[in-house]
Amino acid sequence: MGYTTEFEGAFYLDKRLFDSEFLYLLEFSRTRRMKRDVTILADVPDPAREAVHLSLGEDGCYFVNEKWDRDSEISIVDYNRPPAGQPGLWCRWIPNSNGSGIQWDGGEKFYHYIEWLQYLIDRFIQPWGYTLNGKVYWQGEEPDDNGKIIVEDNKIVCPEDAEELLKYAVSPVRIPRGVFQSLEAIEKAGIALINWRWVMDKVTVLGHRETAMWMESNVEKYFDGLQRGFEADGKVLKSKDVVF
């Protein structure tokens, strides 16, 4: 299950990473990015993060000492939802062997790779005083699913609008008010939103034509909403069951 994209090439920094930065980015990519309770993490040793002078961040987004609660998992709020601002559960971009650039770690099922690269630039590379340039080619499982990522002076110029892609990837999906109210009622009735077919059957039986039409025309958006939440008029509905 899932879809794998492979990458060839690397992005290069204008100078090598310090050892502490190199090690932190490795640990960041090795840990599942899960929403955590920062009050529990407040006194937890996290040497790799502390070495680069990062706070825990919202939802523990910078925490990397996963070994600390691997067995108890007491700090995990949601195993299947990333911290605020992060586009997915796994970041597969890592430093190359000598810390002079960023490359794919070879891991399968790397989703939101453009968004993750933008995140690394915004949160680590640029704030740490580095400039990233380079070109990486990607190839998906389908023969015609291919392209390239070009970075010039910390800006992703190909594809365009990478900053907007990241913003979209971490924001709730906006939906019509009527659709929101319908989905909210469905979940309150005990029907898991993750089951698209059951939800479609239910809204059809209830005569919620607008919701049925929206779901049928926006399948990808619907599943994005399961991951990031649905939003209408400032209210956010988050599914209790999500899959990444």
Rank of each mutant, 00 (worst) to 15 (best):
E163C: 10
N133F: 03
L25T: 08
E21K: 00
L54H: 02
E50G: 04
I102Q: 14
F18I: 02
L165S: 15
F244Y: 15
E160H: 06
G106F: 06
N133H: 11
G2Q: 04
G147M: 05
E231V: 02
D69A: 13
W68R: 15
D161P: 13
P172Q: 00
E58M: 00
P95I: 01
Y222M: 02
E220A: 01
R174G: 10
R70T: 15
T4P: 07
V44C: 07
E73T: 10
R123G: 06
C91K: 11
L132F: 02
L206G: 07
N146V: 02
S75Y: 07
L13F: 04
K148L: 06
W68L: 07
D144R: 08
R92Q: 13
Y12T: 15
V151K: 14
G2H: 10
G9E: 08
V77C: 12
T131R: 15
A84T: 15
V199W: 14
S217Q: 14
F223L: 01
S182T: 14
D59V: 03
E216P: 01
D144C: 01
A84F: 03
P127C: 02
L193I: 06
R197S: 11
L183Y: 06
L165G: 09
N218Q: 07
N154W: 03
Y130S: 10
G147P: 15
V151P: 15
A189L: 07
T31H: 14
R30I: 00
G107I: 03
R228S: 12
P82A: 06
A232R: 00
V236F: 09
L13E: 13
